[in-house]
């Protein structure tokens, strides 16, 4: 992550004295930032920018879209068939570290990442007796990932 001033042309939304902005720089990075000024005037505003990996931004955006898209469905299948979830699967191996991070951060109540993990990696480290038990499934996938990284 790095911080610097950027020009005001990148501001995409203005609210009161602050402006959020987003700029896709290239294939690898996205800039998110907050412009701060006591009185918003483009020529005098200072911008703080945060350069983040493009893949993370893409994954996070799709994850939020997926949560909206699936609504109140209880179906694991319908949830996995959502367009945004399919696009996460389409990210392939690039999505796996972000999925693993999400599983680590929500070990007690993991989200439905197991379909995507199976589709992307072709692996199935979950034992039959743990099917449907998402916290245990998350643990088994995280252990599988650790083993894979050691190889």
């Amino acid at each position: 992550m790095s911080y610097c001033k950027v020009s005001s042309e990148r501001a995409i939304r203005v609210s009161g004295s602050m402006a959020w902005f987003r700029s896709v720089c290239d294939q690898n990075t996205v800039i998110l930032g907050l412009a701060c000024s006591t009185r918003y005037r483009a020529t005098q505003s200072y911008f703080i920018e945060c350069v983040i990996p493009h893949n993370w931004y893409y994954f996070s955006t799709l994850k939020e879209e997926w949560r909206r898209e699936r609504g109140a469905t209880s179906s694991i299948t319908k949830s996995a068939m959502c367009f945004s979830y399919q696009r996460i699967i389409g990210m392939g191996e690039k999505a796996v570290p972000f999925i693993m991070q999400d599983l680590r951060e929500h070990r007690d109540q993991p989200d439905q990442w197991f379909w995507a993990l199976r589709a992307i990696t072709g692996a199935n480290p979950v034992s039959d007796e743990n099917r449907g038990n998402f916290p245990r499934m998350a643990e088994q996938w995280l252990e599988w990932n650790e083993r894979r990284q050691r190889i």
Binding site: S74, S75, I76, T77, A80, H106, D108, Q109, P110, D111, Q112, F114, W115, R118, A119, N124, R131, G132, N133, F134, P135, M137
Partner: peptide
């Protein structure tokens, strides 16, 4: 997130019940 409606109706709060073909 640990259980879903089918599990809840069946009185199980530890798992998600669904007959998906992926075996999740």
């Amino acid at each position: 997130f640990r259980y879903n409606c089918i599990a809840w109706a069946a009185g199980d709060q530890s798992r998600r019940w669904w007959p998906d073909l992926m075996g999740i």
